[in-house]
Design a protein around this nucleic acid. Structure first.
Length: 273
DNA sequence: CCTGAAACCTGTCTGC
DNA sequence: TGCAGACAGGTTTCAG
């Protein structure tokens, strides 16, 4: 499900209330529960993971790439939703838990935060040193530091397909399959283009297009497809994603779907070069 | 270093 | 209706 805009929407909701339910800020934790052991990717050695939470309070919620960072001093609980993860906040008497619930925090005031993940790819970490986890992550695409100059410097002589490079989290942190296809359409660049072949005018425009598509996604609370993620509206703005065979909104040419870097890839063979 | 395939999982949809 | 196979928002690991 989640790429940067969906994760950002969930983070804002956990802070201010929204699609996940009420805010979790400043709530004291009563207990934690883990229902699928492999969901826990890492916990600092010497800590009893489940017991640790009792009595601690949520101090902040933020995002790095597609990671959700919940500050619970002196540690951070980090959640990556991967393909099918979702978070909801509800009252603890909201009824029985759901089929694919993997982890939860019970708050002292009767609320609970539940991590649900059908495909079990999602992971959580509990650590006092989250920087270690993020050491290899690339630049934040919505930061000021991410601009044409940065891209020109870092594109270098990379021979990989531009789509694969944009998906590489150690290059730029947060782009996924949907937004990458939409970005490359807006940029008029074929997904298979080798990164080093981008012209200077394309490099100049690309960072602004990336920011603009991500911001549009965030404004729409992300994209909701199938059963996985609810609350978003960006799916109604797709230009190419999931539009194989349908006419391009710009030129009428049927949108093509191929595989690039092992991912389904949608593009307009006329508008993108 | 880069590339591709496979693995990790469950659910849905398509075609025979 | 049943069933096999393909496919899905992501990332890691391993072979070449």
């Amino acid at each position: 499900m989640p790429e940067l805009p969906e994760v950002e929407t969930i983070v804002r909701s956990l802070k201010q209330g929204g699609i996940t339910g009420e805010s979790i800020l400043n709530r004291q934790i009563h207990a934690a529960d883990l229902f699928w052991d492999r969901t826990l990717a890492f916990s600092d050695p010497g800590t009893d993971f489940l017991a640790w939470f009792s009595g601690k309070s949520v101090d902040g919620v933020s995002r790095r790439g597609k990671y959700i960072v919940i500050s619970i001093p002196p540690k951070s609980l980090i959640i990556h939703l991967r393909m099918s993860g979702d978070i909801r906040v509800e009252t603890d008497d909201a009824g029985t838990l759901q089929k694919h619930d993997r982890f939860l925090l019970r708050f002292a005031d009767g609320l609970r935060m539940v991590f649900n993940d059908t495909r079990k790819f999602g992971r959580i970490w509990l650590t006092a040193t989250p920087e270690t986890l993020f050491a290899a992550l690339g630049i934040e695409p919505l930061s000021e530091a991410f601009n044409a100059e940065w891209l020109r410097t870092n594109l270098g002589a990379r021979k990989t397909a531009i789509k694969a490079l944009l998906l590489n989290q150690s290059f730029i942190a947060g782009l996924g399959n949907i937004y990458t296809d939409e970005i490359l359409f807006q940029a008029g660049i074929l997904p298979t283009r080798k990164a080093f072949t981008l012209r200077s005018d394309e490099i100049e425009r690309l960072p602004e297009i990336i920011k603009s598509v991500l911001q549009t996604g965030i404004k729409n609370n992300g994209a909701s497809i199938d059963w996985v993620y609810r609350g978003g509206n960006f799916q109604n703005h797709f230009q190419v994603y999931q539009r194989a065979g349908a006419p391009c909104y710009r030129c009428g040419t049927p949108i093509v779907k191929d595989v690039v870097g092992q991912r389904g890839t949608h593009y307009c063979p006329y508008c993108q070069h």
